[in-house]
Design a protein around this nucleic acid. Structure first.
Lengths: 154, 154
DNA sequence: CTTGAAAAGAACTGCCT
DNA sequence: AGGCAGTTCTTTTCAAG
């Protein structure tokens, strides 16, 4: 996808929507000094250009009973010639796996895993992750705190 | 936060909204066999209970010219001498840093960094990340592909 | 770009089963 | 708890400057 041409207003709108997509075009425009139709047209243009990929709700996993989040780094065993597709398919089939990243570096894959507690995580690790096809070394990082930032828009 | 009591309908609604929060209570209820008010009341209850933390738009960074995403694992060098708060404040001040995770394991922090390309990432790494207060070993994983899954809801 | 107004739809409220 | 009918509000769309 080629870089879309965005001006300051577009970037300001994106910053608002990434932080909180609750308010509509009217309220966002008011904050930026734009009229409601102008803001609405810009948002629609950003959606059509593919800059805005979708809208989702953020869920508090802790209130759902999943208090533990762990990032796993996985190095595939060099011995067996297991296809990446096999590994990815098996990894994404684990309910507790929220994200599967194919990465370049010390590891081949990074998995974001949620569990109810550390005991539950150990169960997932031993019975699900360690039995993935081709899995070699596994490194784990338990998430203590996580802060998200808006990120650069231009 | 205590685990909220959710039934199957609540979980189904959450699954829908996490995947796509475009449609309103009416459409979601139609898909689940619930009326618009019933679905709306459940969504509001989930928001008030804190299960739904917020709504955000997802942005396609590639179309904004940020084609490179890197996960950094950072081990602090002088523990105790540099406060974690100092590191976190400095890390979150870097525009290219999208996420700062305090983690337990081989590393102390995990950073999600976006850059225009690898040359741009090298600039961020050398001038911004390596100069963070207390930074020791740094490990990098360039993201090739990333697949998100809904995750377990119950 | 703006304002104004109309049409569409979503959100919200009572009342009833 | 869920559904129905109605009201209120925002969003969306269009017309015109």
């Amino acid at each position: 996808m080629a870089a879309a041409e965005l001006d300051d207003s577009d970037r300001a709108i994106l910053r608002e929507l990434v932080g909180d997509a609750t308010s509509g075009a009217g309220e966002i425009g008011r904050r930026l000094g734009l009229s409601q139709p102008a803001t609405w047209r810009r948002i629609r243009r950003l959606e059509e250009a593919g800059v805005i990929k979708g809208r989702r709700v953020e869920v508090d996993r802790a209130s759902l009973g999943f208090g533990v989040t762990v990032f796993l780094g996985i190095k595939l065993a060099t011995r067996g010639r297991v296809s990446l597709e096999d590994f990815e398919r098996a990894a994404t089939a684990i309910p507790e796996v929220q994200m599967v990243q194919h990465v370049l570096g010390l590891f081949d894959y990074r998995l974001r895993v949620v569990a109810r507690d550390l005991a539950d995580f150990e169960r997932v690790l031993r019975r699900r992750v360690m039995t993935l096809p081709g899995v070699g070394n596994v490194e784990a990082n338990v998430v203590l705190t996580e802060e998200r930032r808006p990120g650069p828009f231009g």
